[in-house]
Design a protein around this nucleic acid. Structure first.
Lengths: 192, 192
DNA sequence: GGGCCATGTCATCAGTTGGTGACTTCTAGG
DNA sequence: CCTAGAAGTCACCAACTGATGACATGGCCC
């Protein structure tokens, strides 16, 4: 069936690397670092597990590369300042979970307990989340307000993940959303 | 030295059980479910690892028992209503980390990613945290406000754990505390 | 077309994990 | 004193993990 001229993706190092990276990103976000085995990643990517060691050095280094290319805070920051709380609260509480948007959070939540992954998470989340957020906020107490925003966003994400949709119905999620929006905007507009 | 009449704790099933439970509680809170091995728990408790299976059935059941006897929300709830935010915010941001108070949170944060532990966590945190909190709050939207409080408290705990003391100095933690207190009290006094 | 290196496959290792059952030893009760 | 059963010890298993090195094979350049 498939024309032999385009051997699809055989013997293509770049494509293989990408496939591994993509499969790993999803697995790490869904299951966490510990719960994800290199064999599962390889299977998802349709390659041999040995290639992970060959291309990335090992599971730990692969995790680092996944973090490096994971979506960052920019997803939340573009858009006008006044509607930040409303936008983010909608994503956190009302809209169906958009995994791509919160992938960094999901990876953090589910992998932070692994010593092997913890350091990479600390470093990357600081560089790709807090620093940009702090800069975007501006002002003397930007560091504090960035932490406050992080607390609410991470706490909400964690609650939503642990308890399916907060165990709340649509109406209640709407109320949750409004309260979150006010709190977030309060932190954005600061000062505390 | 020790009088031979009281053979300390040898051949005492109840004391052994307690020792295992205590050691497991600390390990699970500090390292999480996955990162804690039955051999480590047994070593801490000064007993043989086989006794864990004998007394509790297995690691998973042990985890369940640990949750059952972990400190619950009552720690935060006793005291007058008006000062709830201030009290909790102080514990979250200013005072040195009081592990006993937040043990349930720590266990949750570090073990929620383990499928074996997740179900027990969901069930127990609902019974020992959300339900009492919701009752304590009262009112129509108590469920929503309980979630809001949980988001802030869990998010703050997680931030403090991942980044040592939020990476903030004392002055900034004080500002953080004041903002958290206002937010928490806002959710307590509700309605949203 | 032929050699050669990048690419992919495979078998296997060493370490760790939770768990089990046979064994020993202590203690209580007669 | 002596037995019976509880309490504790020990050796070991089966499963799984990440990783490695030997090997096969495809494609590109000369």
């Amino acid at each position: 069936m498939s024309p032999p001229m385009t051997p699809a993706r055989t013997r293509n190092a770049a494509a293989t690397r990408t496939a591994i990276l993509e499969a790993a990103r999803k697995r790490f976000a869904h299951e966490g670092y510990d719960q994800t085995g290199v064999r599962e990643i390889a299977s998802d990517a349709g390659v041999d597990a040995a290639l992970i060691s060959r291309y990335f050095g090992g599971k730990e280094e692969l995790f680092g590369e996944v973090l490096a290319c994971a979506p960052n805070i920019a997803e939340f920051l573009d858009g006008d300042r006044d509607s930040f709380g409303e936008r983010v609260a909608q994503m956190l509480a009302v809209e169906p979970m958009r995994e791509e948007k919160f992938e960094l959070f999901l990876i953090m939540l589910r992998s932070a307990s692994s010593p092997k992954a913890a350091e990479a998470i600390r470093r990357h989340s600081h560089d790709a989340f807090y620093q940009p957020l702090e800069t975007w906020l501006g002002g003397d107490d930007a560091a504090v307000r960035a932490r406050l925003l992080s607390c609410v966003m991470m706490g909400a994400t964690m609650n939503r993940v642990i308890y399916e949709d907060y165990l709340l119905d649509g109406q209640q999620r709407q109320e949750l959303c409004e309260a979150l929006a006010r709190t977030l905007d309060n932190y954005v507009s600061g000062p505390v």
